[in-house]
């Protein structure tokens, strides 16, 4: 696959008339498919498909040392890999700035919402539980923030909690769950032709002027990230925020349905 782009003119014409290439409304997500427990070896895992964007999140829990500035709290570490197979644009090598941004935005939402109470991960002096969240992008078709957050959150919500027996960590044959406090969701909006639309695909991302991601837990805004050079009015931000709370219900019900399966 070498060429997969429409033209800027084409995308702008569509968006300005309130339409999209795949027939969606401006405030509509693509079809979302979510599966939990795809990697049995991981303490938690989930695969999220947003249209053709395919993201796998894996959660591992182990023992480590606390951060120097937070001696009584456990650690959460989030990484994202834009696998080179996922797009002709991605390359082999160390994580790109894009991958790091994706990881940090996902991490911020989960952390700020207090999904995991890090003080409950404290074991004893210099010994805490560490939670590793790894987001693997298998196929890229836009909006890695929302697909990544949805997969990571579902992986956490379905994760089992290992047990410490003496010096060794027991990971098998347990039915204790990782304690979580709430469900955070992420909504990403793009702006092109002076219109705001949700869940941009790869073509739309290529030609959008600006982008904003809003994470909330259903009650409060928990993290935001604006990207790219274009600007955004206060009114547009207000519209996106309102819609992000409406979409929280939609995303949360998909997550809950998956957890119940």
């Amino acid at each position: 696959m070498y060429i997969q782009s429409a033209t800027k003119e084409f995308i702008n014409d569509l968006i300005s008339s309130g339409k999209r290439e795949d027939g969606r409304a401006l405030d509509q997500y693509r079809e979302i498919k979510l599966t939990k427990g795809v990697i049995e070896n991981a303490e938690g895992s989930a695969m999220a498909l947003f249209g053709n964007t395919k993201v796998l999140a894996g959660v591992k829990i182990g023992i480590g040392e606390p951060m120097k500035d937070k001696p009584n709290e456990g650690n959460i570490m989030t990484s994202a890999e834009l696998l080179p197979m996922a797009s002709a644009e991605y390359e082999m090598g160390p994580p790109s700035p894009d991958a790091i941004e994706v990881a940090r935005v996902i991490d911020r939402g989960i952390r700020a919402a207090g999904m995991i109470d890090t003080s409950s991960l404290f074991i004893e002096k210099d010994k805490v539980w560490e939670i590793f969240i790894d987001v693997y992008v298998l196929n890229y078709d836009g909006n890695l923030f929302d697909a990544g957050t949805t997969a990571a959150v579902t992986a956490l919500l379905s994760a089992r909690m290992p047990k410490l027996e003496g010096e060794s960590v027991v990971r098998e044959g347990l039915n204790s769950k990782l304690k979580t406090n709430n469900t955070v969701t992420s909504c990403t909006f793009a702006k092109a032709a002076n219109k705001i639309f949700i869940d941009p695909d790869a073509n739309e991302e290529e030609f959008m002027d600006t982008r904003i991601t809003i994470a909330n837990d259903g009650k409060e805004i928990r993290a935001m990230q604006k990207g790219l050079w274009g600007g955004m009015t206060a009114k547009e931000l207000e519209y996106a925020t309102d819609l992000s709370f409406e979409k929280h219900k939609e995303l949360k019900s998909i997550i809950n349905k998956t957890l119940g399966e």
Binding site: S5, A6, T7
Partner: peptide, 8 residues
Amino acid sequence: LTGGKIIS
């Protein structure tokens, strides 16, 4: 070619 779109 002006306007329109391409697919492969």
